[in-house]
C-alpha cells in the first residue's frame, strides 16, 4: 500500500470520473426512456472520435470545438436511427434490442475499418499534452484532463437543468418513471423516445469526441469503455444522472486506488470495473442509491415501508 500517492491518485480519479460520467449519461438516458441497453455505444464513441479527427484534418476545426458540430450531428443521426430502426423493435424482448444494437456496433466498427483502416490514430495539438503544476500539493494536472472533467460536470448541470426545468425534460423523466402512465397523461411517448435516443447518442458522441483528445483510438475503440459505462450506470442505479455521476466517481476511485494506492498491476486495472459490473448486478441490482435508502423510480421490488400509508387507497 502506498499512501504517499493518495492525493495525486485521488485527483486523477476525480478527473477520470468526469470522463466516465460523460460517457455514461447517454447510455443511462436511453435505458431510462426506452429500457434498451445501447450496445452500439462503443461504436458511437469511436465514430465520434473519427469525426473529430476528420473535422480537424479536413477543415482545420480545433478538436476542442468539435463537440459543437459533433453533438448536433449525432443527435440527428440518433433520432433518425431510432425512427427508422429501433422503433420497430420497441416492446420486443430485451434480447432483441440488445442483438440489434450489437449488430449495429459490428457494422460501424467494420465500416470505420474500411474507411479509416485499422491504424491507431491520435490527435495531437499543442494543448493536448500541456499540463500545470500545483507545487504545494506536488501535483501535475493535464489541461486536457481538466477540460474533459469540466465538460463532464457542465454536461451534468445542463442535463439536470434540462430534465427538471423544461417540458421536454419533464416528459422524459415521466416516461422514464412509467411509460404507460406517461402515455395516459398525454405525453407523446413515441416522440419522446426519439428525442431521448437522439440526445443519448449525442452524449455518447460527446464522450467520443472528448476521448479522441486524450486517448489513441482505432475502429475497435470503446469496448472496454463501454463495459465501464455499464458498470457506471448499474452502480448509479440506472436512471438517475446524479447517480451516474456518483457511480462514475466510485468506479474511477476504485480503479485508481487499486493501482496507485494498493499496488495492483496496471494490466489488471480493467478487472476492477468488470468485477464491479458483475458484482453490483448481482448484489445491488438497484445500484448505490439503494444503499442510501433512496429508491430509484423504476424500482419494482418494494422495500420495507418507511411511512404509514395515508388513506390506504390501493389503486
Amino acid at each position: 500500500m502506498d499512501l504517499g500517492n493518495i492525493l495525486p491518485v485521488t485527483v486523477g480519479a476525480i478527473l477520470l470520473a468526469g470522463l466516465y460520467a460523460t460517457m455514461s449519461y447517454g447510455l443511462g438516458l436511453i435505458y431510462g426512456v426506452m429500457r434498451i441497453v445501447n450496445l452500439s455505444h462503443a461504436g458511437i464513441m469511436m465514430l465520434a472520435a473519427y469525426t473529430t479527427l476528420m473535422l480537424y484534418r479536413s477543415f482545420g476545426i480545433e478538436p476542442y470545438l468539435a463537440p459543437v458540430i459533433v453533438m448536433p450531428l449525432f443527435f440527428v443521426i440518433g433520432m433518425g436511427f431510432q425512427r427508422l430502426i429501433v422503433r420497430r423493435i420497441t416492446g420486443a424482448a430485451p434480447i432483441v434490442s440488445l442483438l440489434l444494437l450489437f449488430s449495429v456496433w459490428l457494422i460501424i466498427q467494420n465500416a470505420a475499418y474500411l474507411i479509416w483502416s485499422g491504424n491507431t490514430q491520435s490527435i495531437l495539438r499543442p494543448y493536448t499534452t500541456r499540463s500545470f503544476r500545483i507545487e504545494a500539493l506536488d501535483l501535475t494536472i493535464g489541461w486536457m484532463r481538466l477540460g474533459v472533467f469540466l465538460a463532464g460536470v457542465v454536461t451534468l448541470i445542463i442535463l439536470q437543468f434540462f430534465l427538471t426545468r423544461t417540458y421536454l425534460g419533464k416528459a422524459i423523466r415521466a416516461t422514464t418513471q412509467d411509460r404507460d402512465s406517461a402515455k395516459l397523461v398525454g405525453i407523446d411517448v413515441d416522440r419522446i423516445s426519439m428525442v431521448a435516443f437522439g440526445i443519448g447518442i449525442a452524449l455518447s458522441a460527446l464522450a467520443g469526441a472528448l476521448f479522441s483528445m486524450i486517448l489513441p483510438f482505432n475502429p475497435d475503440f470503446g469496448r472496454v469503455l463501454m463495459l465501464k459505462s455499464f458498470a457506471v450506470i448499474v452502480l448509479g442505479g440506472l436512471t438517475s444522472f446524479v447517480g451516474i455521476a456518483v457511480g462514475a466517481l466510485v468506479l474511477a476511485l476504485a480503479e485508481e486506488w487499486a493501482v496507485g494506492v494498493f499496488g495492483m498491476q496496471t494490466a489488471l486495472k480493467d478487472l476492477v470495473s468488470f468485477s464491479a459490473l458483475v458484482l453490483v448486478l448481482i448484489l445491488l441490482p438497484n445500484g448505490l442509491p439503494s444503499l442510501l435508502g433512496r429508491m430509484p423510480v423504476w424500482r419494482t421490488k418494494p422495500a420495507r415501508p418507511t411511512t404509514a400509508p395515508t388513506g390506504g387507497k390501493a389503486a
Binding site: M295, P302, A303, R304, P305, T306, T307, P309, G312, A314
Partner: peptide, 10 residues
C-alpha cells in the same frame, strides 16, 4: 404485503 408505502394486503 407492502409496496413501498402502499399496503396492498394489510
Amino acid at each position: 404485503r407492502y409496496f413501498g408505502g402502499l399496503r396492498a394486503v394489510d
